[in-house]
């Protein structure tokens, strides 16, 4: 557990550094790349915290697909962020500090991380862990909860993904570029 904790602390510290770098950078290409690293590090954090399925998804989605989408957006918009004019950074900073302070105050009551007696581990989770072998018969509890116990949820999520696809189709559509080899061909 101690080694786990060290890796966890280091990865999260790296993520904090990258977050600061994202705020300070103006090169949007660099930001997209840093964001990809940020996602990969968070996948590492998930692995350390025993969430293999989540780490897997984050590595494929965050570091892969969303970076590619962000880069594709950059080639169609602008590479550089324009220096901001007539903007006072004090008000955003105050808002962020007050919100952060309230949230930190809220965490002071949270049970210690890893505390097995925390309320979160005493509602439905023990039932899933103890009964899913008998009721569902597959070893991966995450899959049983995802696809069977909480099948409604997942149906909703799948529909959301489909809807997002429809929204992007409505906004951008798919244009097939003309091939360079056959310049005379009409589309």
């Amino acid at each position: 557990m101690n080694l786990d904790l060290t890796i966890d602390v280091l990865l999260l510290a790296f993520m904090a550094v990258i977050a600061i770098a994202v705020v300070r950078m103006r090169d949007l290409f660099g930001i997209a790349m840093l964001f990809s690293v940020f996602s990969l590090l968070s996948a590492g954090v998930f692995t350390v915290m025993d969430a293999a399925d989540v780490a897997f998804t984050e590595a494929a989605v965050g570091a892969g697909v969303s970076t590619i989408l962000m880069l594709a957006t950059l080639t169609r918009t602008a590479r550089e962020e324009q220096p901001k004019r007539s903007r006072n950074p004090t008000l955003p900073l105050i808002v962020v500090f007050v919100t952060g302070a309230l949230l930190v105050f809220g965490t002071s009551d949270l049970p210690r991380m890893g505390d097995a007696s925390a309320p979160a581990h005493h509602h439905v989770a023990p039932r899933y862990i103890e009964d899913s072998e008998r009721e569902i018969g597959i070893p991966n509890i995450v899959t049983s909860v995802l696809a069977s116990y909480r099948g409604y949820d997942t149906l909703g999520e799948t529909t959301v993904i489909f809807t997002a696809g429809v929204a992007v189709m409505a906004l951008l559509g798919i244009r097939r570029r003309r091939r360079r080899e056959e310049p005379g061909e009409e589309d």
Partner: peptide
Amino acid sequence: SNPVPHVLILT
């Protein structure tokens, strides 16, 4: 570890 947060975050 608790599988419920994993499922929520996965989706």
